[in-house]
Design a protein around this nucleic acid. Structure first.
Length: 593
RNA sequence: CGGGGUAUAGCGCAGCUUGGUAGCGCGCCUGCUUCGGGAGCAGGAGGUCGUGAGUUCAAAUCUCGCUACCCCGACCA
């Protein structure tokens, strides 16, 4: 591609609205242009990156035995009513009507449509298994779109759906996808981890997330440095024998329970200070009121720990749809506000986190505004609560089922694979005649990759003050040839640049020739901003010694190489980089559970 | 959805307090010079000041409504 005929519009300044690095750089580099909140046009440079990612995904999905289809972005309400999701999905589903008043939505995902396709086409087990995928625009009406294409409302996603007749088959399909995903992210060239996303109601590996490592990521990952464990922090179980804090130190009560006046004290930190620092937050009882389908319940945690609401939902006292009660509800149920609650004389059922199991002489609210109890002990001053795993795991907790402590890092979710079982096939009657006779719902899996989000994640992961730094496989161009050729005396330089450019093209390298005859500084700045990994500069000065200058985007300084064989040299580098990503050997990032 | 903020040329901003018919930088166009890290000089194009109403002789500026966008919050008692 010749820069003179391409569409490169960069800016020195980014619009004020962008605060995330990737968003700023994408706007400065002219990757995208916003059309509305969370809705973007993809301009040529950005689109090249997105396309390259999509193409890698496509190749690996095809190689894994999936068949590409293309489903409608606009979907009829009737299918969503059939699956039950029309009423469940909420405001994130963008709904509208056509001229006849028929209801539709913009697809946030495609289980309904693909199920409808399957039930029409498949009737017997001999036609399965099948795995269909598409690369499509999705729409989710996010409450608050932000970070550019990282959390946009309209985005491009690869979604695949597998259909099997038995659980073993579903697991095999899942495993095939897991491996394909590892190959995809290896090839894309990013640092990532596959992490457990659900410890499993069904048991086993039912869901994995693929997370690109970046400090600005919204997901927290907890992992074992020895590589035996990695999971989304939200899904890390805390074991019964891991009590955290200083909870192991005082098994026997030493103090009598006393009620003390604590005017205006409603936080653990304020209480700690009020008590003169004597009772650490770990021995303060944090009492929260949660309710779900089964009722309301008081949850107790060590004061230095946080609740994981999903874990609360697993308690029989609470049940599905668990939410924390509002301050008004708490007052109605208990008669005291937040910060003054506690297990002593608590009318609601009580469940305590393991973090309190070995604590004695604790502090808690007195269920009366302005009062706390000190010297509280379970079993003596209030009934011994049932202990359960309620808290959010954090760095320093024990590795589940293993040795040592968890470490923490941040990442961006770019892929997620699930075993769905018969949830949709049952609701939508996707059945197949089984080998043993009789029709049964088929078992599904679904597998997503955020194509456009990967663009932002890649930039988030690798950039410097001058701009983006792309891996070879997804850079807008793998290489750029820059002639430094003054209008009057640059004939020879231009010719040499053309020659190198031609040779690179002939070798199949995706190369940009910057033939715009701009000042060198401008061309360098743009090449750096765009993150083009390999740069060859041809100058009159170099040509006198038969040399070209080569610099990798991430390198500190350039090196001189023979001009004659410059194209060959770069071709070799790029080919070896691409081969390393597609090496067949799945990277270590994928070997954690 | 609650709170806060912003809206002036393609982008970044000033002007608004104290009303008088719009300006700066980047970018764009023309010319000359320059040519290894976002050039210099000279000339030029480009704006219904988000939108609707109101106040006024006069509104970017004051008042009210609307819309869009951004930020914070919407689980830690």
């Amino acid at each position: 591609m010749r820069a003179s005929r391409f569409f490169i519009h960069t800016a020195k300044e980014a619009p004020a609205e962008a605060e995330l690095v990737s968003h700023r750089l994408m706007l400065r580099a002219g990757f995208v242009r916003k059309a509305a909140a969370g809705i973007y046009s993809w301009l040529p440079c950005g689109w090249r990156v997105a396309r390259k990612i999509a193409e890698i995904v496509r190749e690996e999905m095809d190689a894994a035995g999936c068949a590409e289809i293309f489903m409608p972005a606009v979907q009829p309400a009737e299918l969503w009513r059939e699956s039950g999701r029309w009423s469940v999905y909420g405001a994130e589903l963008l709904r509208f009507s056509d001229r006849h008043g028929r209801e539709f939505c913009m697809g946030p995902t495609h289980e309904e449509i693909v199920s409808d396709i399957l039930r029409a086409a498949v009737s017997g087990h001999r036609q399965l298994p099948v795995n269909l995928y598409q690369i499509q625009t999705k729409f989710r009406d996010e409450i608050r779109p932000r970070f550019g294409v990282m959390r946009s409302r309209e985005f491009i996603m690869k979604d695949a759906y597998s259909f099997d007749i038995c659980e073993k088959g579903m697991r095999e399909s899942y495993e095939t996808m897991r491996r394909a995903y590892c190959r995809i992210f290896d090839r894309v060239g990013l640092k990532y981890r596959m992490v457990a996303a659900d410890s499993g109601a069904i048991g086993g590996d039912t869901s994995h997330e693929f997370v690109v490592l970046a400090d600005s990521g919204e997901e927290e990952i907890l992992y074992d440095k020895n590589g035996n464990y990695a999971a989304n922090a939200e899904h890390v179980p805390c074991a019964a024998n891991d009590n955290g804090g200083d909870g192991n130190s005082r098994p026997e009560p030493r103090e009598e329970m006393k009620k003390i006046q604590t005017p205006g004290i409603t936080t653990i930190a304020a209480l700690h200070e009020f008590l003169g620092g004597k009772t650490p937050p770990a021995r303060s009882i944090k009492t929260m009121i949660a309710r779900g389908s089964n009722g309301a319940c008081a949850l107790l945690l060590a004061g230095d720990r946080s609740l994981n609401i999903a874990k609360a939902a697993r308690q029989p006292e609470i049940g599905a749809g668990a939410e924390l009660a509002s301050a008004e509800e708490a007052r109605e149920l208990i008669g005291a506000g937040f910060g003054s609650l506690g297990p002593v004389n608590m009318q609601l059922p009580v469940v305590a986190d393991y973090s309190l199991q070995k604590s004695a002489d604790m502090v808690c609210g007195a269920n009366e505004d302005g009062y706390h109890y000190v010297g509280v002990n379970f079993g003596r001053d209030c009934p011994m609560p049932r202990f359960a795993d309620l808290r959010a795991a954090q760095s320093g907790d024990a590795v589940p089922g293993g040795e040592g402590k968890l470490s923490s890092c941040r990442g961006i979710e770019v892929g997620h694979i699930f075993q769905l079982g018969d949830k949709y096939s049952k609701a939508m009657n996707v059945c197949a005649e089984m080998p043993e006779g009789g029709a049964r719902p088929v078992l599904m899996g679904c597998y997503g990759i955020g194509v456009t989000r990967i663009v932002a994640a890649a930039i988030e992961q690798a950039h410097d003050e001058r701009g983006m730094i792309f891996p070879d496989a997804i850079a807008p161009f793998a290489a750029v040839v820059i002639p430094i050729a003054p209008k009057k005396s640059g004939e020879e330089t231009r010719a040499a640049a053309e020659k190198t450019y031609g040779e690179l093209r002939a070798a199949g390298i995706d190369v940009l020739l910057d033939d715009r005859e701009l000042r060198p500084g401008v061309m360098f700045a743009e090449a750096d901003l765009l993150g083009i990994p390999h740069r060859i500069v041809i100058s009159p000065r170099g040509l006198q010694n038969n040399e070209a200058e080569y610099k990798h985007r991430a390198a500190d300084s350039p090196e001189n190489i023979p001009a004659k064989t410059a194209a060959e040299t770069i071709t070799k580098k790029i080919r070896s980089n691409l081969a390393a990503g597609a090496g067949g050997q799945i990277s270590r990032a994928c070997q954690t559970s």
